[in-house]
């Protein structure tokens, strides 16, 4: 059987990277982002990338690292705040930006992986998002046609995975990762814990291994938090 487990991020990406390629990267903010593979793409130095990701990391972390090296030509995202370098590059015209409503972005990727070339949605009808796109009425409602998205490479991050490429995500770190795993011509996954085949609950697998071509043990994980928000601990429990 074809070996999916690779020895580190550089080997996992070997032969896959080229200038001008399209890369999908999972994660929401800094949560569930494939940080090990992003660092390897930075080290590889490929340029003119189109990156499809809900956000573009923050200054100095996650996809923000690829901005530092000027490796990204275009971003397809729903929200890009909290990133000064992004703002500078965008306002100076070096970086192209396509905004998609978050649900439309998720569905475009889902459709891409599911072999559906386009779909109709109410989201964005009558706004800038629908300009230049086909509109159609169904049952008295107007919908806009959105095209599917695929990529030359999808990089995803999971909590646990095995040699078959089966993946399980943890809490809200799942987000865009499962759809992106289906929509890459090649999908590379990094996991916090690579486990023996058979160790994962077969009913609990989120991404079946068919969608994953290569898998690595990622890390060590920094897992930065963008906004640590807490509430005061009661002085005495149940006082």
């Amino acid at each position: 059987m074809l070996r999916k487990i690779r020895d580190g991020a550089a080997e996992a990406l070997s032969g896959l990277l080229f200038d001008g390629m399209t890369v999908m990267s999972g994660g929401f903010g800094l949560c569930g982002t494939p940080e090990t593979l992003i660092a390897a793409i930075k080290a590889a130095g490929v340029r003119e990338l189109t990156v499809i990701s809900n956000n573009c990391g923050i200054d100095g972390a996650s996809l923000g690292l690829l901005l530092e090296g000027g490796q990204i030509r275009k971003m397809i995202s729903s929200y890009v705040g909290e990133n000064k370098l992004f703002e500078q590059l965008y306002l100076s015209g070096t970086l192209e930006l396509e905004f998609n409503p978050q649900g439309t972005l998720a569905e475009r990727i889902r459709a891409g992986g599911a072999g559906i070339p386009a779909f109709f949605t109410r989201t964005g009808v009558g706004t800038l998002v629908a300009e230049g796109k086909e509109l159609r009425d169904f049952d008295g409602q107007t919908y806009v046609m959105e095209r599917a998205l695929t990529a030359d490479l999808a990089i995803v991050k999971a909590w646990k995975g095995d040699a078959e490429g089966n993946l399980i995500y943890r809490k809200t770190a799942r987000n865009f990762n499962p759809m992106m795993a289906t929509a890459g011509k090649v999908t590379v996954a990094e996991v916090e814990e690579l486990v023996e085949v058979g160790a994962l609950d077969k009913d609990g697998i989120h991404t079946p291994g068919i969608f994953v071509d290569r898998i690595i043990q990622g890390g060590p994980y920094e897992k930065r938090i963008e906004r640590v928000t807490t509430r005061p601990r009661p002085e005495r429990e149940a006082a």
């Binding site: 949560c31 909590w159 809490k171 906004r227 640590v228 928000t229 807490t230 509430r231 005061p232 601990r233």
Partner: peptide, 20 residues
């Protein structure tokens, strides 16, 4: 609700990217 100090989980955030 928001976690107690020291109990924030990087894998558990809301859409505003706050820990929950």
């Amino acid at each position: 609700p928001f976690p107690y100090p020291g109990e924030a989980d990087a894998d558990l955030i809301n859409a505003g990217k706050q820990t929950i």
